[in-house]
């Protein structure tokens, strides 16, 4: 089912949460709404679900205008951040709920068969008789997904699905959700504030800030070509260095970077921690190491460059770096945004 948002607006009291958002989600795609808290991502998701009504604009499911269809008739599966499992029902009863209250009558055995099928799909065979309070967080989230899938939704919506889980469980569930999506091919929209989650999981990422779409594209597009300093900063660690542009060249002290499309004047240069090379001497920006942080995959160096700007960069684990050391930084890649 293709979903189209056309100039959707939502205001709470005096606070405008969503400013005229338009978005196309192709049938069968897995799309992430990514943004900091307060960016309106959950509100957009809830409007697609019908849990909030849009104050303006339209939401289309396929060719049908779904803007005013209430949630119970919209045919969406919604997975809540804190699972929202019915605590007084067993896992099997939770999954069966949608089928039991449905207008289309199903026989008991039909429901039981479907529940078994879904328990198998979410790899929880044998746990049907447990209550939600008796299983782990990761298992609860899978029950929540099975429950949402039980009513054969046209669209699957997930609100921070892995937000309350610890890092390892999160990574496993992410892969697993992707597998389920590929198996069922259901159009899926999920909300997250975790860049890694969005980039790992989604076909397309929609980045939001203050109720507006800032950038949308495939993970490769938004990673390789962030269209603003906000996206650059939001997607991962980024260093900012102020520079001046004269005649298509940006000057950081003595160091020069090509900036063919920038007009003269002040500019911000953004660097990822992996965008610079460290060497004890030679060309480049001179820097003094302040601190070295050891991480499993390498060493993160905190340094001050000339002019006093703080900078973080990564070096391979075997590099000999110590605090207090002086050296040079060679810029391999950089992105320039107007200051």
């Amino acid at each position: 089912m293709k979903i189209r948002l056309d100039q959707v607006v939502k205001t709470f009291d005096t606070f405008r949460a969503v400013h005229g958002v338009s978005l196309d989600i192709e049938s069968g795609q897995l799309v992430a709404l990514l943004g900091p808290s307060g960016s309106g991502k959950t509100t957009i998701l809830r409007m697609v679900a019908g849990l909030e009504y849009a104050d303006g604009g339209h939401i289309y499911f396929g060719d049908q205008d779904a803007t005013d269809i209430p949630v119970r008739d919209r045919g969406v599966g919604f997975v809540f951040q804190h699972y929202a499992l019915f605590p007084h029902m067993t896992v099997a009863e939770n999954i069966a709920f949608g089928m039991k209250v449905s207008k289309t009558k199903r026989s008991k055995s039909e429901i039981a068969t479907r529940v078994e099928e879904l328990l198998r799909l979410v790899k929880l065979e044998g746990l049907g008789d447990r209550f939600p309070g008796q299983i782990s967080g990761g298992q609860r989230q899978r029950v929540a997904l099975a429950r949402a899938l039980a009513v054969d939704p046209k669209v699957l919506l997930l609100d921070e699905p892995f937000g309350a889980l610890d890092a390892n469980v999160r990574r496993d569930l992410r892969r697993w959700l992707r597998e389920i999506h590929d198996e069922l091919g259901i159009t899926t929209l999920f909300v997250t504030h975790d860049q890694e989650e969005a980039l790992d999981l989604a076909d397309r990422v929609v980045i939001l800030d203050q109720g507006r779409i800032v950038q949308e594209g495939t993970p490769a597009e938004v990673c390789r070509a962030p269209n603003s300093a906000f996206v650059m900063r939001f997607l991962g660690d980024a260093n900012r260095i102020s520079a001046n542009v004269r005649d298509g060249r940006a000057y950081i002290g003595e160091t020069v970077i090509d900036a063919p499309s920038s007009s003269d004047g002040p500019i911000d240069i953004y660097l990822r921690p992996g965008d610079v090379d460290w060497r004890p001497e030679g060309d480049g920006i001179s820097a003094t190491i302040v601190r070295v942080l050891d991480r499993p995959g390498g060493r993160r160096v905190l340094a001050n460059v000339e002019g006093g700007t703080a900078l973080e960069f990564d070096v391979p684990p075997e590099t000999d770096v110590r605090s207090g050391q002086h050296g040079r930084l060679l810029i391999k890649r950089s992105r320039l945004y107007p200051a």
Partner: peptide, 18 residues
């Protein structure tokens, strides 16, 4: 009572009385 429980029940097609 977590409002999400009622929202979940609604999204699963439950009527108010159900």
């Amino acid at each position: 009572l977590d409002p999400a429980l009622e929202e979940a029940a609604q999204s699963l097609g439950g009527s108010d009385s159900a």
